[in-house]
């Protein structure tokens, strides 16, 4: 019962956040200089055509009405019409077509970053102060210092142009071929994952070292449990909650990185859609993408909260 209340409260707060964020994005986009009608119809459009367009898109209604109309549409899955693409593509269909690619690359990068950071962070912490620790720690700070999109090109230079292992450009949609997506998405995911892994492993190392000092670790060793057992069941298990929380805080950097890296590798993701929309000053596309990105981060944070609740016996009981 308590869990259910907590869940409802948390979900309600997330929904409120999304609403507030949508309003902010709406107002921001509304303030963008330029006339949407002129942008859509071109400079030569007749005043009548412009007036028709403005009426059709409710551009002359009060702001509050416009926002409510947008919101009503958004709830039904209608995010408006793209003005930059001929044929009047709906923004929702543009996003629906590209979002899976972005989610795939994002999840791929997250998994790689987790794998790298758990390995490096654990080794660094359990070999504290030794060569392995120094190597992992300096490796982490070097990778954190690299712009992810630049790293993308370096990876291309190495693994595509020199070795020819992975394609330098282009992305096979996971819907077409999952293996193809794994293959063609590896370099973009790695480019995002490596700096992230640097950040993650530093956090993991710090929390592990803190946990190593806890009394229950000594107590476990007194019982005669082996090092590996103590590390896994006592140290790592109890460092998980702070680690997962820290990862949740990085969601905005990870998704931010996706936007730029998608351009480098020509991944047709929502980041690319948003950048193209920005170039064309296509307000409905940019607005839709921004809200969807916001939704993803909010959902990730919700998920992190849930996960922490599951990991922590104090809330599970």
């Amino acid at each position: 019962m308590r869990v259910l209340t907590w869940l409802l409260l948390r979900a309600g707060s997330a929904a409120f956040m999304l609403l507030l964020g949508s309003l902010v994005v709406f107002l921001l986009m509304h303030a963008v200089p330029g006339d949407a009608a002129l942008a859509a119809l071109g400079d030569q459009a007749s005043p009548d055509a412009i007036a028709d367009f403005r009426r059709l898109h409710h551009l002359d209604d009060p702001l509050a009405m416009q926002f409510l109309a947008w919101l009503r549409g958004a709830l039904r899955g209608d995010l408006g019409t793209s003005i930059s693409l001929a044929g009047g593509f709906s923004t929702a269909s543009l996003i629906a077509g590209s979002l899976p690619n972005t989610l795939f690359i994002g999840a791929y990068a997250l998994l790689l970053a987790l794998a790298i950071s758990i390995t490096a962070g654990s080794i660094a912490a359990s070999r504290h102060g030794r060569v392995e620790d120094v190597l992992a720690t300096s490796g982490a700070i070097v990778t954190i210092s690299m712009p992810d999109f630049w790293l993308g090109y370096v990876l291309v230079l190495l693994f595509s142009l020199e070795l020819g292992w992975f394609p330098a450009y282009g992305f096979t949609r996971p819907g077409e071929s999952f293996l193809g997506a794994l293959h063609s998405g590896f370099l973009p995911a790695l480019a995002i994952a490596v700096p992230m892994a640097g950040i993650f492993s530093r956090m993991l190392r710090a929390t592990l070292l803190e946990t190593f000092r806890r009394a229950y670790v000594t107590s476990a060793r007194v019982m005669g449990f082996g090092r590996a057992f103590v590390f896994w069941h006592y140290v790592f298990r109890n460092a998980l909650i702070p680690y997962v929380t820290a990862i949740g805080l990085q969601a905005r950097y990870l998704l931010g990185g996706v936007v730029v890296v998608e351009r480098v590798f020509g991944v047709p993701g929502i980041g690319s859609v948003m950048v193209d929309g920005a170039f064309a000053r296509d307000i409905s596309v940019v607005q839709g993408c921004a809200v969807v990105f916001l939704l993803i981060v909010i959902l990730v944070n919700l998920l992190v909260d849930l996960l922490c609740g599951l990991l922590d016996p104090r809330t599970a009981a």
């Binding site: 806890r214 009394a215 229950y216 000594t218 107590s219 476990a220 007194v222 019982m223 069941h233 006592y234 298990r237 109890n238 990991l311 922590d312 016996p313």
Partner: peptide, 16 residues
């Protein structure tokens, strides 16, 4: 064997 001053801290908080 050894018994500690702080019994709460001597147990793994994540396990029954």
């Amino acid at each position: 064997g050894m018994i500690f001053q702080d019994p709460v801290g001597a147990f793994n908080p994540a396990k029954r």
